[in-house]
Simulated assay, not measured.
Amino acid sequence: MKTQLRVAALLITGMLPAFAMASHWSYEGKDSPEHWSEIDANNQLCRQGMNQSPIDINKAMQAHLRPLNTAYADSPISIINNGHTIQAGFAEKAKDIVTIDDVAFQLQQVHFHAPSENTLHGKHYAMEMHMVHKNADGEIAVVAVMFETGAANEELAKLWQAMPAKAEESSALKQKIDVNKLLPADLTHYRFSGSLTTPPCSEGVRWLVMKHPVTLSAQQLKQFTDVMHHDNNRPVQPLHGRVIVE
Rank of each mutant, 00 (worst) to 15 (best):
residue 129 M to G: 12
residue 116 S to C: 00
residue 137 D to Y: 09
residue 99 T to I: 10
residue 157 A to T: 13
residue 63 A to S: 11
residue 77 I to L: 15
residue 67 P to V: 03
residue 62 Q to F: 10
residue 117 E to A: 15
residue 147 F to M: 08
residue 103 V to E: 11
residue 159 L to R: 03
residue 95 K to P: 00
residue 57 I to C: 02
residue 81 N to C: 07
residue 108 Q to V: 11
residue 39 I to G: 01
residue 95 K to S: 12
residue 87 Q to S: 13
residue 65 L to I: 01
residue 111 H to E: 08
residue 44 Q to G: 03
residue 97 I to K: 07
residue 74 D to E: 13
residue 102 D to K: 13
residue 60 A to I: 00
residue 53 S to W: 04
residue 146 M to H: 14
residue 125 Y to E: 03
residue 129 M to D: 06
residue 80 I to S: 10
residue 59 K to N: 12
residue 124 H to P: 00
residue 118 N to A: 07
residue 118 N to G: 01
residue 148 E to H: 12
residue 42 N to E: 12
residue 154 E to F: 07
residue 47 R to L: 15
residue 125 Y to K: 02
residue 65 L to T: 01
residue 151 A to S: 12
residue 81 N to A: 07
residue 136 A to P: 02
residue 84 H to L: 08
residue 153 N to Q: 13
residue 82 N to K: 01
residue 76 P to G: 04
residue 60 A to Y: 06
residue 133 H to W: 01
residue 80 I to P: 02
residue 87 Q to V: 10
residue 82 N to E: 03
residue 41 A to Q: 13
residue 139 E to Y: 07
residue 139 E to L: 08
residue 44 Q to E: 13
residue 79 I to H: 01
residue 56 D to K: 00
residue 88 A to H: 04
residue 119 T to Q: 15
residue 93 K to M: 09
residue 85 T to Q: 09
residue 43 N to D: 05
residue 74 D to F: 14
residue 85 T to K: 07
residue 148 E to M: 14
residue 117 E to M: 08
residue 78 S to Q: 11
residue 64 H to F: 14
residue 101 D to M: 06
residue 91 A to W: 07
residue 91 A to K: 09
residue 51 N to C: 11
residue 117 E to H: 09
residue 137 D to P: 04
residue 120 L to R: 11
residue 151 A to H: 10
residue 69 N to T: 11
residue 70 T to R: 10
residue 74 D to N: 14
residue 154 E to R: 09
residue 43 N to H: 15
residue 88 A to K: 04
residue 112 F to N: 12
residue 145 V to T: 07
residue 71 A to Q: 11
residue 45 L to I: 09
residue 70 T to L: 15
residue 146 M to E: 09
residue 48 Q to F: 15
residue 116 S to Q: 03
residue 79 I to M: 06
residue 42 N to L: 08
residue 125 Y to T: 05
residue 91 A to P: 04
residue 62 Q to M: 10
residue 120 L to T: 08
residue 89 G to M: 04
residue 103 V to N: 08
residue 121 H to Q: 11
residue 137 D to K: 14
residue 64 H to R: 14
residue 77 I to E: 12
residue 110 V to G: 06
residue 107 L to T: 01
residue 136 A to V: 09
residue 86 I to R: 08
residue 127 M to R: 02
residue 60 A to S: 13
residue 55 I to E: 04
residue 146 M to N: 13
residue 119 T to A: 02
residue 133 H to F: 11
residue 43 N to C: 03
residue 52 Q to I: 08
residue 103 V to H: 06
residue 97 I to P: 02
residue 157 A to Q: 12
residue 77 I to F: 13
residue 40 D to M: 04
residue 96 D to S: 08
residue 86 I to A: 09
residue 61 M to E: 12
residue 102 D to T: 06
residue 133 H to L: 05
residue 126 A to F: 00
residue 108 Q to F: 02
residue 128 E to G: 02
residue 114 A to R: 00
residue 112 F to L: 15
residue 95 K to W: 02
residue 137 D to T: 09
residue 86 I to M: 12
residue 127 M to T: 09
